[in-house]
Design a binder for these strands. Structure first.
Lengths: 240, 240
DNA sequence: ACAAAAGTGTTATTCCTACACCCATGC
DNA sequence: GCATGGGTGTAGGAATAACACTTTTGT
């Protein structure tokens, strides 16, 4: 760390945290954003976040800042995504941002301030600064992790039917997912377990759907080292 | 970005970049580090890095700082890992670190300063600050990406035999890898292509080994969405 | 009985591992 | 020829996608 003493305040460099909080709402992947009233970028939509304080690390900071927009207890998963550090990513003094992915269960509907709303990730309104890029990275991270971890627990309600889960995965991934195969894959990997209960059928009738839950509600890698795994280990159910 | 104007220099917060540069040397995964002469943490080994400048983003910064320790042209891959932001991760003024993974081809032997050396990741000497944790995260990232991307290109020479590649993967992953299956998996995924040349056998004889190269020398995901991939797509050779 | 929705059975295919066997060279 | 290391053939098993079929409900 040579030169640590020569720090100056000539051009101040601040640090902020930003969260792309995603949720499946009305069958679509949406992100929480608030509409800026003041310059810079008035009228544009921005991700929740704010300055890093002296006494907190970035994880603590993002949780604190999120608390100003949503009930944090509703945010089931928070994970660091990437640093955005273009010197001119915001006008004025420099601001380095640590971006996060946050997930909210689809059955939650947390109260949000008047300036805050959910927007479809696939058709974002005009966004402030580089926030659209952050949302895209968050979306891609979610999609990747749905495939090799149990991250679905952070999108799904405590109990759900397979078809409900299929809709969640389908909306998050952006392509159709077969309920049949989804159930079999997730069951074989021991991600899902039946609750024993059933959900009542809809008005048109139909067989009542069995209810399932995620066996773990904390992040677990279920398909690590897809191919190059240690010899002799069982299939792809590597529990890490 | 409310409150941007109230920034103060009361407790200065700086930003540094740190790189865990990994290479397979002598059959082991090693990391580049330099031995601190001055406090804090004198005598301990630290990762290359330093302060972020006003006019560069973190990617540019890490490449610039690496240039002070190794010939940057030898670093074949650089990738952001994570932010380390514990308020007390270093003594004195606060310093937030963006950590990177760097990779050097196994046939390179770049000149390094006198205070700098390669250390086995599996048995690190006493490290400064939180640098051991950074190395562990970098190692895990490498291991994961070797399995679902073509990242091997960044570890391997331009041309290599399958057994040489097997040793690299084996050292990086920390477990034995079968040359037979490695070749078939990487060939089926179109990561490898034969050069048509052969390597001369060793002094004990043996069949001359065919030489291969990586088809791409830029990062490519070869096994995305291991299971939950769009319907109708071909096997696992999803080129993203 | 019929429609609707859920869940299981079944088959074909792809992918992977393990191991046996064949190939090309030095001595 | 024999040892050494490289490469291929092949069989068995596991996981998956696709689709047909059965089950359970409401009307």
């Amino acid at each position: 760390m040579p030169g640590r003493a020569d720090q100056r305040c000539s051009r101040a460099t601040g640090h902020e945290v930003l969260a792309a909080v995603l949720q499946i709402r009305d069958g679509a992947l949406k992100v929480l954003a608030w509409q800026r009233a003041l310059p810079p970028d008035p009228g544009r939509w921005a991700l929740p976040g704010g300055r890093l304080r002296d006494d907190e690390d970035v994880e603590a900071s993002v949780r604190r800042q999120l608390a100003e927009k949503v009930d944090v207890r509703e945010v089931t998963h928070v994970e660091q995504i990437s640093v955005f550090s273009d010197p001119d990513r915001v006008p004025g003094d420099r601001l380095v941002a640590t971006a996060f992915l946050g997930l909210v269960r689809s059955d939650a509907d947390p109260a949000v301030p008047a300036d805050t709303a959910w927007h479809p990730v696939a058709s974002l309104p005009a966004t402030a600064f580089d926030h659209a890029e952050i949302v895209a990275v968050a979306r891609d991270r979610l999609r990747a992790k749905l495939s090799y971890t149990n991250l679905g627990f952070a999108l799904a309600p405590a109990e759900f039917t397979i078809s409900a889960l299929r809709e969640l995965y389908s909306a998050a991934l952006g392509h159709p997912v077969s309920a049949t195969n989804l159930q079999r894959v997730l069951t074989r990997r021991r991600l899902l377990e039946p609750t024993g209960e059933v959900a009542p059928p809809g008005p048109a009738g139909g067989r009542p759907a069995a209810l399932f839950r995620f066996a773990d509600r904390s992040l677990r890698v279920t398909d690590a080292f897809a191919v190059l795994r240690p010899p002799g280990e069982p299939g792809r159910t590597v529990v890490t």
